[in-house]
Amino acid sequence: MKRRSKFSKIKEKMVEKFFLLNGLLVVFILVGIFYLLLNESLPTFKEVSIVEFFTSTTWNPTGYHKVSYGIVSLIFSTIMVTVGSLIFAVPLGIACAAYLSEIAPAKAREILKPTIEILAGIPSVVIGFLGIVLIGPMIAKIFNLPNGLNAINGSVLLGIMALPTIISISEDAINAVPDDYKKASLALGATEWQTLVKVTIPAALSGIIAAVMLGMGRAIGETMAVLMATGNAPAFPKSIFSAVRTLTATIGIELGEVAYNTTHYYSLFAVGLVLFVMTFLINIVSDWVLNKYEEAE
């Protein structure tokens, strides 16, 4: 009897350690990736001045006359496409979340929720393909452009991809708003619409902001869809109708043929590092907002 309890105690301990190990593994992987990125990208700056890297708008590592490594255009394009996607996805996502949690009858919710989950599971190549054959020509037609491969196209596609994240997390946030708030608002004579817009959504705002930040994190790191649909011209974008090339697309296009251990190779890792830092910051901010919101609750 005694032995058995001792045994189960040891077992308990081992299981605990096992899970600890799993947790640590994730941290190790993250640190490992960061180390690798840092290690592989630092040699870039032996040949490229760090000032040029962060201030030049010309990215042309395989130049005919002279090579140049400037990522300003790439960063700007990435931000432009991402912000564009949010302009499209945030109102739609919040409206959808509000409908799902506040208005939709149970039956509609039963159909809509799994549908949104399926949307999250569509591979990005498929979305990119849609961008080429459907959204591109549509944009060209609506705005009377010669071609639909531009920043807007990328924004729409990324918006579609960020939607599921934004919807499901915002919905949780809106659901978490105490019923008392709504009841109080309704009792004071506010209409359902006024309650939703002036009480429920503001009360869930920090959760919604976190949802938006996470959606943004998803959008900023997406490669395939933007690579296929934005035209990939490395020029500094003149307008939302310019073809743009994002940080991710640059890595996606060039890493396949670059000779290993050259400045070009290292510089692609440096681009990756910049991207990593960008998404890392976004995640930290969204984490911080989410924490605040949980505290407030």
Binding site: T58, N60, G63, Y64, H65, S73, N147, L149, G231, N232, A233, P234, A235, F236, A243, R245, I253
Partner: peptide, 9 residues
């Protein structure tokens, strides 16, 4: 020489 940066790739 180099392609114009405006060229769609």
């Amino acid at each position: 020489g180099d392609y114009t940066a405006e060229m769609k790739r």
